[in-house]
Design a protein around this nucleic acid. Sequence first.
DNA 1: GGCTGATCATACAGACCTGTTTGTTTAGAG
DNA 2: CTCTAAACAAACAGGTCTGTATGATCAGCC
Lengths: 211, 211
Amino acid sequence: MSGLSEARSEQTGPTQSWRQATSDAASPRERILAAAAHLFCHEGFAATGVDAIVAQAGAAKTTLYKHFESKEQLIDAVLEREGAAWRRWFFGKLGALRGDARARLLAVFDVLEIWFADPEFYGCPFINAIAEFDTGDERIRAAAAAHKAHLFAWLKAQALECGDSAPDETARQMVVLIDGAIVAAQGARDPSFARTAKGLASIRLEARPDL
Amino acid sequence: MSGLSEARSEQTGPTQSWRQATSDAASPRERILAAAAHLFCHEGFAATGVDAIVAQAGAAKTTLYKHFESKEQLIDAVLEREGAAWRRWFFGKLGALRGDARARLLAVFDVLEIWFADPEFYGCPFINAIAEFDTGDERIRAAAAAHKAHLFAWLKAQALECGDSAPDETARQMVVLIDGAIVAAQGARDPSFARTAKGLASIRLEARPDL
DNA sequence: GGCTGATCATACAGACCTGTTTGTTTAGAG
DNA sequence: CTCTAAACAAACAGGTCTGTATGATCAGCC
């Protein structure tokens, strides 16, 4: 009779995913963000309506508009949250490894493969957002650039720690390999493209013994 | 002078873009397809309405629905046309080159950079479509897979001609580099990512002297 | 001229979208 | 228990979307 919680308890359970399962008891704001992230990234930003989001979140539309001014701002919040959560998970995994910077650079692709193998994997939200909003919405481009800047900074720091004489170029190359692995794995639904990219990274790092 | 290469460079034409400028006198069907391609890829598939397409095409909505059953089928037709036109241009440019297969594999990234530098560059329509329709619409995934299969077959043929002992893996690596260059160039609006990817390809091809 | 088929222009139907309004229900603090 | 703030439910307003229906216009061909 309550009808309140029926829609909330659908994606619980222990998860091996990179993302923590969203608790049923989470705040409405968190439930809305989680549902919006799921739907935006699977069905598309424009194709996902706020009604579908609140339905999946088990929330009321008034609640959504109390926490977010508009759908556009909800998209911004989702991207920021997804980016932060992903970076926490990604750099956390990498930081927990033993080994030197070169080993960490190669381990990037092992962590990517774990990500790709998640049955919920839907690609990089920023790549997807840029693909959908090529023109217009410059704020989305800025959010994507900020995310990429975090990644780039980390990659460059690893290259510097390796003693790389051209850390910027090395970081750019790693960005190309990471983006390429993401897109290829997403398109073909084949996580092993992470290993393909790792092979290239390995050759690249071996080819420069000054690293 | 050289009548041999003339037949292969037929696609370049007087326009500086990879795509022929669509003549105003083209058939309504062609105008609709061109306008739809432009709008779909710049504004997004879901965000582009048929009214905007016919307005830009200078056509009537009835004409659009006489040629295409639905917007969904129009998307299919646009993807097929875009893919065919791009492959004609891309492989045409590469086929016109002198040099062996290894040189052609490296030239891939020079041609990509020309593409990226087009002010109308909006990324790969198939990557963008997959990003927007992650779930649902399996026909779009099939169209993207067919396009990628063409590219993969060409890359593998070049690798075979090089005497590569693992042409499949080499072609996969090139796919990763191409996809990564496309996405990085699109996201940062920086065509030079083609050269970044070329550097990796070069190292990869040099690292295997058996090629 | 008169016929034909394609295209154009406009209005429309029904569904869906974003965002708001109104009022009810719930949960926690004093 | 009372008070309060948040969340819920449902209807609504105004706009936009896909796709259709209805004619008008135009080009070519007899």
